Each structure stands twice: as structure tokens, then as C-alpha cells.
Amino acid sequence: MNDFLIIIPAFNEEENMLTVINTLKSLNSPFDIVIIDDGSTDQTATKAKECGAEIISHPTNLGYSAAIQTGFKYAKKKRYPYVIFFDGDGQHDSTNISDMMEAIQMENVDVVIGSRFLQKRNMKIGFSKMIAINFFQLIIYLTTNKRITDPTSGFKAYKANVYEKFTKSSEFFYDLPDSNFIIDILLRELIILEIPVNMFDRQNGKSKIHATGLKPVIYMAQTLLSILIVVIKKKGFIKVGGDLN
């Protein structure tokens, strides 16, 4: 077993799965890979098995948050010192994995976020999504006095002292863990480091989180509500959920 675990949450990513896994394996780097198949109805799991990947399958689609927590719990069970989340849609650049690995091993760093905005990139970002990103940049700054350039990035690395905290449902209660999760981590006085990464436009399939129409508005409203809960919870006014080990 290696010290690093690459966790890939996936839902109906059969068109991207082979490329994502094979690209990671071609790096010949010291990490293990696990696919969290979130109840896919296509051939996602089959494609992953063809590559010899470790797979954990949810019996039904439980959502991105549940896939993340399953990854955390698997990593804790196996006692990985570090985990890196890597999207199954082909948008993350595998050549940045080594940068993430190096950064998360630094002293006084608890979480690393791969940011597409620290250097000029060619990835196209929709108008509504850019508004959401700018809005949550502001919310994070107002609530934590910290600046995060890419609050919606799914390319993240965690040390065990962080991810193990979130294997309990009382500590990880999100439907969509984005800016709300970042604020939670910062309010715990943990250190987040952003590093520049490259991201690609999605080639196949559709985003399951950031879509068009009213979905971005609903996403922003849900995230704002979750941020409010995080802040209130931090102040000790409420307790959320119960521990599930």
C-alpha cells in the first residue's frame, strides 16, 4: 500500500472512465486508486474493472457528498496518510498530481486545493458559473478573512488529520460540499494552500452539479444555507446529525 490514495467519485462516467484511470496509471507514481461508483446506471463500474481499479459501489445514487464521505471512510479504514480527490469526468490534469502530492506533504498545510485561477488557463467557464465562483470567493472572505481563488474546485488533497474528522455524519452533513466545506475547514483553523493546476473542458457527458437553467440558482441557495449552518454550528448554537461509525 502506498501513502497516497487517489479517490475518484463517479456517476455515469462510462465515456471517461477508461481514459481517466489509464492516464493516472501511466504516471507510474506511488499512489493507489479507488473509484467510488455512486450508483451509476451505465457501464462506469464495468469500465473501471477493465482497468483493474479498486471499486466501491453505492447501491443507488446517493449524491456527490456521500461519494466523498465513502472515500474518506475507505481511506481511514486503510490508514492512508494522504488522499487526493480527482474528478472522473476527465477535466482534471493528471500531470498536476505530483504537485498536489508535494504540496500536501508540506508542514503547516492541511488541505491543498488545485486552482485554475492562479495562472492563466484556456478552460472555458460559463457566465453563471463564474458569477457563482466570484460570489463564493466573497462569502469565504467575509466569513473567514481568507481568500480562496477557486472555491468550486474538486481537485483537493487532504491529510489524515483532516479527512478522518469528516468520516462522522455530525461533521460532514453537506449535500454539495464546495464553499461551505472550505469555510468549515477554515473555521477549524486548519491551513488551506492553493496551487495552480490545469483543467480541461468536459469532453463527454454532462456535469452533475453545475448545470444550466435554474440549477445554478438552486445550487447557490443550497450552499448559502449550508454556509449559514456551518457558521451557526461553529458558534455552538446547534448540533447537526449524529455520529455514524
Rank of each mutant, 00 (worst) to 15 (best):
Leu142Asp: 11
Lys215Pro: 00
Ile227Thr: 06
Phe86Ser: 00
Leu18Lys: 14
Arg188Leu: 11
Tyr219Asp: 12
Ile56Thr: 05
Ile55Pro: 02
Met106Val: 08
Ile191Met: 09
Met106Ala: 14
Ile68Asn: 03
Asp178Pro: 01
Pro81His: 06
Leu224Ile: 14
Asn122Tyr: 10
Ser226Arg: 04
Ile195Ala: 04
Tyr74Trp: 09
Thr70Met: 07
Leu225Thr: 10
Gly39Lys: 03
Glu107Leu: 11
Asn28His: 15
Pro177Val: 01
Leu142Pro: 04
Ile232Met: 13
Phe166His: 13
Thr152Glu: 03
Asn134Phe: 11
Ala211Gln: 15
Gly241Arg: 12
Lys47Pro: 01
Ser128Glu: 14
Thr41Gln: 12
Val197Ser: 01
Ser29His: 09
Lys206Ala: 13
Asp175His: 09
Phe181Thr: 03
Ser128Gln: 13
Gly236Asp: 08
Lys165Asp: 09
Gln203Trp: 04
Glu13Thr: 07
Ile7Asn: 00
Gln69Phe: 02
Thr60Tyr: 12
Ala221Arg: 11
Ile36Val: 11
Ile209Gly: 04
Thr144Phe: 08
Thr44Val: 06
Ile185Ala: 00
Tyr74Ile: 11
Pro9Lys: 06
Tyr80Gln: 04
Asn96Lys: 12
Leu228Asp: 09
Lys159Leu: 05
Thr60Asp: 10
Pro30Gly: 06
Glu189Thr: 11
Val162Met: 08
Leu18Thr: 15
Asn180Arg: 02
Ile56Trp: 08
Met106Glu: 15
Ile7Met: 04
Tyr163Met: 02
Thr23Arg: 14
Gly114Phe: 02
Glu171Pro: 05
Ala103His: 06
Thr149Ser: 15
Ala160Met: 10
Thr60Ser: 13
Asn16Asp: 07
Met101Val: 05
Ala45Ser: 15
Ser128Trp: 08
Lys25His: 09
Pro81Met: 05
Thr41Ile: 11
Ile139Gly: 00
Val217Gly: 03
Met123Pro: 00
Asn12Phe: 03
Asp184Ala: 03
Asp178Thr: 08
Asn180Lys: 02
Ile182Leu: 13
Asn145Val: 08
Phe172Glu: 01
Thr223Ile: 12
Ile33Leu: 06
Val217His: 07
Lys159Gln: 12
Ile36Trp: 02
Gly126Thr: 12
Met199Asn: 07
Asp32Ala: 07
Leu138His: 11
Val111Asp: 01
Glu171Tyr: 08
Lys165Met: 09
Lys156Ala: 04
Ser128Asn: 14
Ala67Trp: 01
Cys51Gly: 08
Ile97Glu: 02
Phe31Tyr: 11
Tyr174Ile: 05
Leu193Gln: 14
Ile21Arg: 02
Ser57Trp: 02
Met123Gln: 15
Asp32Asn: 13
Gly205Met: 09
Leu138Phe: 13
Gln119Thr: 12
Ile131Glu: 11
Ala53Phe: 05
Phe181Arg: 05
Val109Thr: 13
Gln105Phe: 05
Lys239Arg: 13
Ile182Met: 03
Ile218Gln: 13
Ile125Gly: 03
Arg202Gln: 15
Phe4Asn: 00
Met123Leu: 12
Gly236Trp: 08
